[in-house]
């Protein structure tokens, strides 16, 4: 088992009323799964993904990641945990505009204190694997959306995470680019990477092994 959510609640107080963003979420994820989270706008998909990715907290419930109890960890430990095991892919790529492709890939390694030679080797490896060696010195603005997302995934993968969290990874792409990206995810999943994606599209959800449906913060 990779992670487990038990009775997760998340809410905000607005005008004296408690509005639930997540309500009693329970599920487990095993290693090697490819899960799609679906639901209409405002149903809490992204919030759930952020909670799983430890970017956002929750108000009630238990969250176990590997053998750690995330809900009782301190900020610093939590950040070490996700730094180590989780890679993120975003709808709008979130590449750093001021850095080249190569430097963007290198960034996570810098924060993990890899040595310079290790970094070089890993970056070269990743550029090779995604066929973007020729673009390594370009800045994100010089790439197409699909290429940017490719770099985004490469960056998420570079430190060998156990889990990839993707928030509508194809949302800003055209259908052909989107298909390519989904194929890539499928391939990665086959290689053993666990993937959780948020998506609107039934077609994309079909790539996954399991679907979690959300409505108004509840699993249905």
């Amino acid at each position: 088992m990779l992670l487990q959510l038990k009775n997760i609640f998340k809410w905000v107080n607005s005008g004296g009323q408690r509005i639930f963003l997540l309500k009693d979420i329970n599920f487990e994820v095993s290693e090697g799964e490819f899960i799609s989270i679906m639901g209409p706008s405002g149903s809490g998909k992204s919030t759930l993904l952020n909670v799983i990715g430890m970017l956002d907290g929750f108000d009630e419930g238990e969250y176990h990641f590997l053998d750690e109890s995330v809900h009782s960890l301190k900020e610093k430990h939590r950040s070490n945990l996700y730094k180590e095991y989780i890679g993120f892919v975003f709808q709008s790529y979130h590449l750093l505009d001021d850095l080249t492709v190569k430097e963007n890939l290198e960034m996570p390694l810098l924060y993990k204190k890899y040595s310079s030679s290790e970094r070089k080797a890993k970056v070269a490896d990743m550029l090779d694997r995604f066929n973007i060696v020729g673009k390594k010195d370009l800045f994100p603005a010089q790439l197409s959306g699909g290429q940017q997302q490719l770099v985004g995934i490469a960056r998420a993968l570079i430190s060998n995470p156990k889990l990839i969290l993707a928030d509508e990874p194809t949302g800003n792409l055209n259908s052909k680019q989107g298909e390519e990206i989904m194929e890539l995810f499928k391939k990665l999943n086959d290689e053993g990477v666990t993937i959780i994606q948020v998506t609107h599209s039934e077609k994309n959800a079909a790539y996954g092994s399991r679907v979690i449906n959300l409505l108004d913060g509840r699993m249905i």
Binding site: G53, L55, K76, S79, Y82, K83, F88, H94, L95, L96, D97, D98, M107, P108, Y111, K112, R155
Partner: peptide, 16 residues
């Protein structure tokens, strides 16, 4: 702001 957020998701600490 986006740069900061991204750096954080990539594992940057406050101090860094």
């Amino acid at each position: 702001l986006r740069e900061i957020g991204m750096r954080k998701t990539l594992g940057a600490e406050k101090r860094q």
